[in-house]
């Protein structure tokens, strides 16, 4: 298992992570090692096995009634945001 520099950059792009040149050697070295390590799973006999969906047998996602359960606290929540104006989160212009 090996990854080229472009492979690493492609994974970083999919993960929305900016990678600095200083970080490249560490990632190029460790990611293939991890992927090689997990490849030992391919030896396991799993032909008739269903992938595990939940740690507990017979559990399914609960449903709840579609009613309002939260009160408006947007001002409080937005105190943690870097850029807010008129109760709106600001991001760089998306449409020219």
């Amino acid at each position: 298992m090996s990854l080229t520099r472009d492979d690493v950059l492609d994974i970083a792009r999919l993960a929305r992570l900016a990678i600095t040149p200083a970080e490249m050697p560490g990632l190029s070295d460790s990611l293939p090692k991890i992927l090689t390590f997990v490849e030992q799973l391919s030896a396991a006999q799993t032909a008739d096995v269903e992938p595990m969906a939940h740690p507990l047998d017979g559990q399914s996602q609960r449903l709840r009634s579609d009613t309002v359960s939260e009160t408006d606290a947007h001002e409080r929540y937005q105190q943690n945001a870097a850029r807010v104006e008129a109760s709106l989160y600001l991001v760089p212009k998306v449409i020219e």
Partner: peptide
């Protein structure tokens, strides 16, 4: 954290999902 995010991104990406993620969930069942 970046290393794990990237490992996860890779094993979930198109073409690798079955070989890594589904396989691991099967072994998890075993």
């Amino acid at each position: 954290v970046k290393r794990r995010i990237m490992t996860g991104t890779y094993v979930l990406s198109a073409g690798y999902y079955d070989a890594y993620y589904i396989k691991a969930q099967k072994v998890r069942q075993l």
